[in-house]
Design a protein around this nucleic acid. Structure first.
Lengths: 187, 187
DNA sequence: CTATTCCTTTATCATAAGATAAATAATTAA
DNA sequence: TTAATTATTTATCTTATGATAAAGGAATAG
């Protein structure tokens, strides 16, 4: 759990009591490459923290597999739309490298918000940061060519290109696999 | 202020004490069409609520004016990246129709988080909703043609097209004004 | 009311990326 | 190891959108 608390500390430090309360509603899992941690149509009631490994959130658009985002170790991952609405998610979480994961019961966590103001504060800050990241990503998508987006990824997150199959990267960049391959050819 | 509290109630109801505390750190302003409520380079320390009128957030990308988003009455508007980082914003808020606005002192609001847990909860929920909206917008941008995006806007937010100059809508949709005009011509 | 400025449309040409097909290359299973 | 499957690249053709220029409309200031 220490690894998770270290991640939390980047946003908001917690008291020992809060950390223990979170530990009580959490459990560890290991899961193999290419398995779906959660599948499409399942209502999300869990927040995950990746201790080790890589995952992605994906969905189907007109029958085509689209990667919404990649998640590496020391990050949390959840299908937030489903978590917040209580509706089945159109999205799935797939493991791309054998992973060690902490799963946190989301409803139990939300109940902790009442007892521990600082836990709610922590997640407020996490969401604020996620919101800003996402707004910035819109700018990246809308005003850069696919080639610029590829080069930015190569520069800012070279791990993605080293550890993830290119076919998943293509849809994350908003282009076809064939286009990505063509862009990589321009050297 | 009642109009603002009614908006808040959609996310989280507040006690009279909380409402009064927010009222104390708020003030009303009126501002004319085409004026910048906040300009580029200014550090954002205010959250606004639009009682009446229309506004947009815009920034310059390679010298070209880009609309990040439109905001109509009964919504809050803020340059969140600047608010959270304390750094000058690359973005500006411009009024597109004569407006009546409530301005909330952001630092004073953040201090209220300590005294009124429910106010922090309210803003947690507002950010969660904004995050989900933004993630969905990425899908719209990435996997629909400009024409589909235009038609979706026409269907979901016809007010934008009625009340806002098309040149601002074009960059919001991620296309040039000329392309938007061509798309509108396809009937 | 008129002149000026700004907004929107139309037209032409150039180009990045999509669709499809097929050839390699890499990975996985038997 | 070999066969089968899956991933990536290359090639060809098509199309949506960008860039630029210019004309027509609408709004605003004086």
């Amino acid at each position: 759990m220490e690894q998770l608390f270290a991640y939390f500390r980047k946003f908001n430090s917690l008291s020992k009591e809060s950390e223990e309360a979170i530990a009580e509603i959490s459990s560890s899992i290991t899961i193999k490459k290419n398995k779906d941690l959660q599948s499409i149509g399942h209502t999300c009631k869990t927040i995950y923290f990746i201790k080790k490994g890589v995952a992605r959130i994906y969905y189907l658009h007109k029958g085509i597999d689209i990667t919404e985002n990649f998640f590496f170790e020391n990050n949390i991952i959840a299908r937030v739309e489903s978590l917040l609405t209580g509706k089945p998610s159109r999205k799935a979480i797939q493991i791309l490298e054998d992973a060690e994961i902490i799963s946190i019961n989301a409803n139990a966590l939300f109940e902790l918000y009442d007892r521990f103001h600082e836990i709610e504060r922590l997640f407020r800050k996490i969401f604020e940061a996620a919101y800003v990241d996402t707004v910035n990503r819109i700018e990246g998508i809308q005003f850069h060519t696919a080639e610029e987006r590829y080069k930015a990824l190569l520069h800012e997150a070279p791990d993605v290109l080293k550890r993830v199959p290119l076919k998943y990267v293509a849809s994350y960049l908003g282009i076809t696999q064939v286009s990505l391959s063509r862009i990589r050819g321009h050297r």
